[in-house]
Design a binder for these strands. Structure first.
Lengths: 223, 223
DNA sequence: CTTAATCTGTAACATTTGTTACATTTACAT
DNA sequence: ATGTAAATGTAACAAATGTTACAGATTAAG
């Protein structure tokens, strides 16, 4: 069990001995979950630190009309709801669903707090994690602030290009998924993609996008 | 200078003596700013802790079409860009404008890090601050995920009622401001308000809202 | 009190996106 | 190879919001 945690952002920098020692001092438990299980609802209290050790979780926000907006997917060994354990509002912001079978490590808040004081490296790691969450959410807001679907598509592609480098982008998402991620309906996304293809901005096939006119793509975002 | 900081979320719980001692160990500087001044642009590196001591700042995100979306206003003694000092992406997420004259306290990151290890109470405070930021942003996303203007209005009013308590809500914002906050245009907001008034959901005058039908208001959000 | 600036109401029209429904294509398991 | 489920293309129409422009109301400054 511990080797997985050594690679986690929270325990990064610790040796196996140090980690083992730490866990001998701090109470904790393991819980298994099944694919499809609802692990937490928006509004549930957050009173424990949760580390995903195996499996895949998905956090999704459900708006009041019942539509859902996928927010993020979690893979091990990440923390769950890290930014909601402290601060003024200790409630789950999203619905947490299991996409596969897996298991989580649970440490009650009090114990977790003790652990932070016991190991300052873990505390620094934790600050980095929470900061990273805030930064992720900030980026999400940038994205959601884009007004038109064209802008969202352009932004999405340009983000991918930046990390990739070329005029070629591999997609591992279906349009159905992307529509959810963008917070728009699937036919609308499809239609807009067709329009942009007709304008010779890019070609979009199942598994990749080839940019044909980078200038046009940039100009959609006014740059 | 120090008395102001005693009330700040970052130094909460310290005595004046402790704070004075801390500042004798940690290098810092004061900078004055003028109303209207642009203190930071989105993308600027964040390599120092900044505490607002006097005056009012506003963080606004500028989308690529040049429209702006007001994100938050800062009053003393709050930290600026607290969630961007650590974590993977140390860049300002917003444009930071001075709404009034004022001054800020600056501590370079290295010194700030030292301070966190020197004073664990400050470290805990800082975790609370960053967590609070993440939670604020999360709420912002909830809001931006609302699809229609009606939903945004309903959500906004119900939030205000919750903190107030009655069927009466005081507004200190102009519709022009609110439209910006909602990320919609001003005439569209106005139109939608009129429609909701015609449906006898509330009456909206310059400085207050009186709810006439709480059920309808809730049903807009599907609850 | 007067004037200028800001805020608000309103309307016609354009644009974007959602809704619904169905056809077509692709992927996958048997 | 075949059948089934998932993903995608497409179209007609409805709904929501943006755009632009102007008039009236309110507020702030002098």
């Amino acid at each position: 069990m511990y080797p997985i945690l050594l690679n986690s952002p929270l325990f990064r920098g610790l040796t196996l001995e140090e980690l083992t020692h730490l866990f001998s001092l701090v109470k904790h438990q393991i819980r298994h979950f099944r694919s499809g299980e609802l692990l937490a609802q928006a509004g549930d209290p957050v009173d424990k630190a949760i580390l995903l050790m195996e499996g895949r979780l998905q956090g999704e926000m459900v708006d009041f009309a019942g539509n859902s907006l996928k927010i993020e997917e979690l893979d091990p060994p990440q923390m769950v709801a890290a930014a909601f354990l402290y601060g003024p509002k200790n409630k789950f912001p999203v619905f947490l669903n299991a996409k596969t079978d897996g298991k989580i490590l649970i440490i009650l808040k009090k114990e977790f707090t003790d652990m932070l004081s016991l190991e300052s490296r873990v505390m620094v790691n934790y600050i980095n994690i929470v900061s990273g969450k805030a930064q992720f959410l900030s980026g999400k807001i940038t994205f959601l602030s884009l007004r038109t679907i064209k802008e969202k598509i352009a932004y999405y592609i340009l983000q991918m290009v930046k990390s990739g480098g070329n005029n070629y982008v591999a997609i591992d998402q279906t349009q159905t998924n992307l529509a959810e991620l963008f917070g728009v309906t699937r036919p609308s996304l499809s239609r807009t993609i067709q329009e942009m293809e007709k304008q010779d901005i890019f070609t979009w096939s199942r598994d990749n996008i080839v940019i044909k006119d980078l200038k046009k793509l940039n100009s959609i975002l006014g740059r």
